[in-house]
Amino acid sequence: MTAAAGNGRACSVLITGGAGFVGVNLAAHWLAGGERVRILDSLIRPGSERNLEWLQQHYSDRLDFVHADVRSPHAVATAMQGVEHVVHLAAQVAVTSSLVNPVFDFDVNASGTLNVLEAARRSVRAPSLIFTSTNKVYGGLEDLRLRAEGQRYMPLTERVRARGIDESRGLDFHSPYGCSKGAAEQYVLDYSRSFGLRTTVFRMSCIYGPHQNGNEDQGWVAHMIRKALAREPITIYGDGRQVRDVLFVDDLVDAFAKARHDIDKLSGRAFNIGGGAGNTVSLLELIRQLEQLLERRVALSFDGWRIGDQRYYVSDTGRFQAATGWQPRTEIASGIEALCDWLASSEPQLSYGHMAASAAPMDAGRLGVSG
């Protein structure tokens, strides 16, 4: 399964963490366009081996795979040889995991990113680089005044209601995960300033779509859909009114392509990337959409709020739209249905069938939270 880096062949792009959910979609896009792509991945995350096998089945003639970890400076430097562009996706991705093992979280997210930057800086011809950060760099947003409106929280400030949180918001790293990703993104931006690398940062919100092997700690949209298809109960932490903007992965791939094309003018800048104000959903609202799509109830349970869980976060993507012309094109309903279809087709044990006719109808008020 492992190929030597380069294997004597030049590659246009290196994607670290390229066997993950975002990476496999991005790699497929560029491979389908005729480019040669190199992936570096440790294959630690569940589902990554299956994603890699899918890529190899479809694009084996143009795909190079390096089975390695970004914590290895030598492996990263070797994989970097001869590439023109890097997308650095490899990361420890869960707040909960960072609380259990903050040292591992730092080693992967902060030290691993520094390895990638140093390899790029020391290359004969330094490649351009896009780094994926997180909205968690803005902290818990506790100062944001909210009120409950039906099944969601909404901000009282009109500008935030209309557009979301923009990049002028001060950084406030929460949790070891927020700290490690925040530190990493600041290194990425500074390597543009200090060493002249062409780098940019995507502060990403909630991405969803095919090839996502989500769990309740990360990739929550896919996690909830999988649970619903499997007719298993879903645990909601908090009251379920927390709101996020969600972005279908095809639209994210388009954002990567535009950033790569315009990297010279985007270099040294950070951008919010998400579904924006036009693609928001609360946890309870997502459950309701799934119930309508599946025509049956979804079992729920509730637990306490988790550390660093923002009650409201919506990306203002205006800065990136103004710079590149990009905007999301996939509506939530279409994206959810596409992910349901992919999960049901790729995991035969999941049921996409409707509720039996004898079952009780859905109760329109069933999702309300007391208190």
Rank of each mutant, 00 (worst) to 15 (best):
A3V: 12
T16K: 05
L31D: 00
G33D: 07
I39T: 05
D41M: 09
S42D: 15
L43Q: 13
S60E: 09
R62W: 04
V66C: 02
A68R: 14
H74A: 15
V83H: 01
H85C: 08
V100D: 11
D105I: 03
A110Y: 11
N115M: 04
L117R: 02
L117K: 07
R122S: 10
A126V: 05
A126M: 04
I130E: 02
F131L: 12
F131I: 12
G150Q: 06
R159E: 14
R163Y: 13
D166Y: 03
R169E: 15
R169N: 14
S180W: 02
Y191R: 03
R193C: 09
F195Y: 09
R198P: 06
R203N: 09
I207R: 05
G209L: 00
G214Y: 07
N215L: 12
W220M: 11
A228I: 06
P233K: 10
V249A: 07
L252V: 04
A259N: 05
G274L: 07
L283Q: 11
L283K: 10
Q289D: 15
L290Q: 10
D309S: 12
D316S: 04
P328W: 00
I336Y: 04
A338V: 00
S346Y: 05
L350H: 02
S351M: 06
A360S: 13
G365R: 08
L367R: 00
